[in-house]
Amino acid sequence: MEVTITINGTPVTSDVEPRTLLVHFVRENAGLRGTHWGCDTSNCGTCVLWVDGSPVKSCTMLAAQADGHEVTTVEGLEQGGVLDPIQQGFIECHGLQCGFCTPGMMMTGRWLLDNNPNPSEVEIRDCISGQICRCTGYKNIVASIQWAAEHPLTSEVTA
């Protein structure tokens, strides 16, 4: 079936089998390998991306379900050559080691801050509780999200 998904603002059309998972559409058909794919069982969270602005585990959604919808991936965070504060935070606070969990952590972290600009440590840990990191012990991931909360992008649009 023909599926068109707008990914990071660009429509991508592909002829896929209905059983194609969204994570594979994004990686193989759209060629965006930033979104990782790990457990396949909706447990690790490395495949988290946004569909219509809300994070989902893309290994547990069909590409067909996203037909006609907007997807945002980790590649969509950076704007005009400027890293999103969540990305900068992971650099500043050493929020990754192997980097496998990182795209999912960033997409969830950005979403949290969009809805709750000053989360407590407990709220951050709760929000990433469906995602697994085997390297950092989570401490630096939490610090990275806190860094991003403390350094929001200052809007250039002023009245």
Partner: peptide, 9 residues
């Protein structure tokens, strides 16, 4: 129930 991301679906 599950985690915040699963709860979205």
């Amino acid at each position: 129930i599950a985690d915040p991301i699963v709860r979205n679906k």
